[in-house]
Design a protein around this nucleic acid. Structure first.
Length: 216
DNA sequence: CTAGTGATTCCCT
DNA sequence: GGGAATCACTAGC
C-alpha cells in the first residue's frame, strides 16, 4: 500500500543546504499555492539547480541586481523572474545566505485545485500539461513577480508553502543537462543539474539551448 | 516526430 | 542594443 503524503511544512533548515542536495530532495514534495479561489497543490516532478556566482547559467552570475536580489537572501524564499517578454518562472532559494543558489521548479503534477489551474492554462490539451514546463507551472499556479521574495517557510498565512509530501527514492531520480541554458548539452562539459522523476508523464521534454538570430 | 519562428518586455552592457 | 532558465503554433517528414 502507498502511504499518504506527509502534509508537514518543510522547515527552513531543509532549504539551508547546498543546492545540489536540496534539488533532488524536492522531487515528490508538494507545493501549495493559496489563492482567493482556493488552494492549488502540485507534486514536484522536475527541477534544476543554479549555483550562484560560480555558475554561468545563473542569474546571480554577474552579481546582485534589483531583479535577482532575493537570491542573495534567506533560504526558503521564492525568486520569481519574468522572461521572454511573456512568462514567469519560480525558484526556491537555497543556502547558505549570500551564496545566491536556487532551484528552478520546472514541472509537476497538479494534485488539488486542477479546476483552478485549467482556467489559467486554456491551451493545455490534458491535465498532464498543466504544469509541464517552468512557465506553465508558474502560470498554472498564478505566480508572478508580485510573489517575488515570498517566504515559503513563514509561520501562519503565506501564499506559497512546501509540504514534505512523499520523497522520491534515489533510484527513481534521473539527472541530466539543464534545459535551454547556453553551453549545456553540447559536448561533455555540462552541469547535469536537472533532476526529474523517472517515467513521470508530467516531466517536460528536453530542449537544447537555441541561440536566436537577430530580427531585422 | 523534429525543426523553425514569432510573440513581447525587462534587464544588463 | 540585444539576449533571455519559454511557449504555442506551423510546416514537413
Amino acid at each position: 500500500m502507498i502511504a499518504s503524503p506527509d502534509r508537514t511544512p518543510l522547515p527552513r533548515s531543509f532549504f539551508d543546504r547546498p543546492v545540489l542536495d536540496v534539488a533532488p530532495d524536492l522531487l515528490g514534495r508538494i507545493l501549495v499555492r493559496s489563492t482567493p479561489d482556493g488552494p492549488i497543490a502540485l507534486r514536484l516532478t522536475e527541477v534544476e539547480a543554479y549555483d550562484g556566482p560560480n555558475d554561468p547559467g545563473s542569474h546571480a552570475y554577474r552579481g546582485q541586481t534589483a531583479r535577482n536580489s532575493v537570491m542573495f537572501g534567506e533560504p526558503g524564499h521564492v525568486y520569481v523572474y519574468f522572461t521572454y517578454g511573456m512568462w514567469h518562472c519560480m525558484n526556491l532559494v537555497c543556502g547558505p545566505v549570500g551564496r545566491a543558489s536556487a532551484v528552478l521548479l520546472r514541472a509537476g503534477e497538479i494534485i488539488e485545485g486542477a479546476e483552478l489551474a485549467r482556467t489559467r492554462r486554456l491551451s493545455a490539451r490534458n491535465d498532464k500539461e498543466l504544469a509541464k514546463g517552468p512557465a506553465r507551472l508558474a502560470t498554472a499556479l498564478d505566480v508572478g513577480r508580485a510573489l517575488d521574495g515570498t517566504d515559503a517557510c513563514a509561520e501562519g498565512e503565506t501564499p506559497l508553502r512546501v509540504l514534505a509530501g512523499t520523497p522520491v527514492p534515489s533510484d527513481q531520480v534521473c539527472n541530466g543537462p539543464r534545459t535551454g541554458v547556453a553551453g549545456e548539452g553540447g559536448d561533455g562539459d555540462v552541469h547535469p543539474w536537472r533532476f526529474w522523476v523517472a517515467n513521470d508523464p508530467t516531466v517536460s521534454p528536453y530542449r537544447a539551448h537555441v541561440p536566436r538570430r537577430r530580427r531585422s
